[in-house]
């Protein structure tokens, strides 16, 4: 990387050069700070293209400026003119682009191979992600002991490929973890697949990439890669029986649970709370499953950090924090009730 940067300094313009010096390529969502092999392949192609194309640009502009030099008046013969013109047009206009694109096709197209969900000897784990306005539903259909459901966070094993099966529940969204690889659209009615791999454990930023309406900006996804054993433990903690116990373990929160069933359970599910299925199906709109909300790093798909009291705060002010989001403003509910519900939800941390 350092070598590349040296090259950059020569060829890239001043503002960006300054910018590179100041913050470099690092970043939570930076394509240029790859943490997986798919993204690394693409980043490599980028640096190659940047170097060569900068050279092309500088050459063309320099040649252009060179033609404005003051010059002697010696006239060229018609044959000389023709030869020079032909060299420029055939060399610069035909040969250069053709050679460039042939090379680019041969070396560039394979850079995407790793992200294609082709069959493997051992089938990779599958994680299903569904885009909603404006949050992420995440499912682990292959978890031992039954499907695990969570929202706005993806936990994945590191060091091995994972297949993401994505779709959209309402409008088109786009699933993208920049440091791991390319994006894939979440289209209602279809399931698209992409294979991503994190080299080692870590936390990565992600955000909806296809414009999906009012709160497109606040549709963040928290991605965490873990060692295989940690990942399996994380899944095991989220088995339905465990979560059910968690939801009802403390009597102190019984009133909050009742309020939840009354006001929230139409749209939000918490494992272990008895809500008639019919009511669930009548839901005006589906909200995130909250069974493990206390263990999630953020609220509102990245609007607030999960801290003590944060859920209550969110329940009171969510239409100010994330204007236009699909949850009603809770104007008819006492702040006390909201805080109580929040306090209880915070305990749902397996």
């Amino acid at each position: 990387m350092r070598l590349m940067r040296a090259q950059l300094i020569r060829v890239w313009s001043i503002p960006t050069f300054l910018a590179v010096l100041l913050t470099g390529c690092a970043g939570d969502k930076s394509i240029l700070d790859p943490a997986g092999r798919g993204a690394a392949d693409v980043a490599l192609v980028w640096w190659g293209m940047l170097g060569f194309f900068s050279l092309v640009l500088i050459t063309v502009v320099a040649l252009w400026l060179y033609t404005f030099r003051p010059r002697s008046s010696r006239a060229r013969t018609a044959i000389e003119e023709k030869r020079l013109a032909r060299r420029l047009i055939l060399g610069g206009g035909v040969l250069l682009p053709v050679a460039t694109i042939v090379v680019l096709m041969i070396f560039g197209v394979p850079a995407g191979q790793r992200m294609l969900p082709v069959p493997l000897g051992t089938p990779p784990d599958v994680i299903e992600v569904t885009g909603h306005q404006w949050w992420w539903e995440v499912r682990y259909p292959g978890a031992e002991g039954g499907e695990v459901v969570t929202a706005n966070q993806v936990v994945m094993p590191a060091g091995e490929p994972v297949d993401f099966h994505v779709t959209g529940a309402d409008v088109i969204h786009s699933f993208w973890i920049p440091r791991l690889g390319g994006k894939i659209d979440m289209v209602p009615g279809r399931t698209n697949r992409i294979r991503l791999e994190a080299d080692s454990p870590g936390v990565f930023g992600a955000q909806c990439a296809e414009f999906c309406g009012t709160q497109h900006a606040h549709m963040q996804l928290y991605v965490k890669a873990m060692e295989r054993s940690d990942y399996e433990a994380w899944l095991a903690e989220r088995q339905v029986p465990t979560l059910e116990t968690l939801a009802v373990q403390s009597d102190a929160h019984a009133p909050a649970r009742e309020a939840f069933v009354e006001y929230c359970a139409q749209c939000h599910r918490v494992a272990g709370l008895a809500v008639p299925d019919s009511q669930w199906e009548l839901a005006p709109i589906q909200g995130p499953d909250l069974s493990d909300i206390g263990a999630r790093p953020t609220l509102g798909a990245g609007v607030l950090a999960m801290e003590e009291g944060a859920i209550g705060d969110w329940l009171r002010r969510h239409q100010q924090l994330k204007p236009g989001n699909r949850m009603p403003a809770h104007l008819g509910l006492e702040p006390r009730t909201l805080q109580a519900i929040g306090d209880w939800l915070e305990t749902l941390s397996p």
Binding site: V98, I101, V102, M105, V109, L116, P117, V118
Partner: peptide, 18 residues
């Protein structure tokens, strides 16, 4: 002709429906 051959080239190296 160039356009046909160049655009047709990937047929040699990529699986069709993945």
């Amino acid at each position: 002709i160039v356009a046909v051959l160049f655009v047709g080239m990937p047929v040699l190296g990529l699986p069709p429906c993945v």
